[in-house]
Design a protein around this nucleic acid. Sequence first.
DNA 1: TTGAATTGGTCTCATATAAGACTTTTCTAT
DNA 2: ATAGAAAAGTCTTATATGAGACCAATTCAA
Lengths: 174, 174
Amino acid sequence: MRPIQAASDQNDISVEPSDPGYRAILNGSDIPTAYKIGYILNFYREPSFRAIETEFGLTRPEIVILLALHFRDGITASEFCEFSGHLKAGVSRAVIALEKKGLILRRTDKSDNRRQHLFLTEAGRELYSRYIPALKAREQAMLACLSARERKQFDQLLDKLAAHVPQWGSLSEL
Amino acid sequence: MRPIQAASDQNDISVEPSDPGYRAILNGSDIPTAYKIGYILNFYREPSFRAIETEFGLTRPEIVILLALHFRDGITASEFCEFSGHLKAGVSRAVIALEKKGLILRRTDKSDNRRQHLFLTEAGRELYSRYIPALKAREQAMLACLSARERKQFDQLLDKLAAHVPQWGSLSEL
DNA sequence: TTGAATTGGTCTCATATAAGACTTTTCTAT
DNA sequence: ATAGAAAAGTCTTATATGAGACCAATTCAA
């Protein structure tokens, strides 16, 4: 869990990306880009999500569903599966649990009785608003080492990568 | 699992990052950058890792340990925990399993009997060489939409972000 | 129409994982 | 030297998860 060096004594030192110590760790892999993304995201997401799990009694997919509903209220479970990559069994379990906790509502689609649209309840919104600040703060901390220009570049590159996921994400032969 | 659109019929269309459909999905979140990284990485990693799990009978941490040993042979379990963010209990289980399968060796540190250095065996290397090509191919597919210049930019930004992880990764208050 | 295939969602079972207690070894202060 | 604290790694238990079977509603083709 703890990163390779304590943070305390280097808050204002700008470590160069070419620093040999870090390169050795991060760039020696056969899949350097994927490895680094994974490294960064693990440290962003795991501690946050673990904290939310224990503090609020939610599971991983439950957290992500609330996150998604907050900006795409009314989606169905299978739509969520499609754009999130989660497995439908897990999503189904999470949806049942979230409804039982009163955090979401399910409304059966009028024109297709199989589909259920999901909506945040007030309680769901309220819970979300209690855990999102920590995630936001942690995102800011993660990006703090980038200049405004670099952040914009980074976001644009991510937008481009994300937009192209459909072109390779489902290629099972890879 | 399946992305939001089939890949087949748009292989040569360059979707703009500002495309409203994608923006709606990806940029509406309160944590847009983290969300997009997670989205991209999920689609990269989950299918690959699931395939490796079932084909080679490895667990997630076992896969990652082999990956790490391949460019940092001889590290100890706790060093791996530090730079990977994995929990030590899971790593311990994985290490025991990997040794039992003959994929790694453990050598107790001469000067500290608590520590065990981990080394790939020939069988470990061989197994690694059977699953890494798919991961590499998938990384290439993921990055295919970026120009050479954009990829370089992206990697540099990731290097910078990765180098700074120690400054915030362990901040439990976030 | 009606029967086959597909899709959305649930359930079951076997496995993987998180959390934290525990053991052994080493480090640190006196 | 020695006690107390910390660190490396293991184990246990309770929970979460993945895979695939399953059911019901819908679509499609003849």
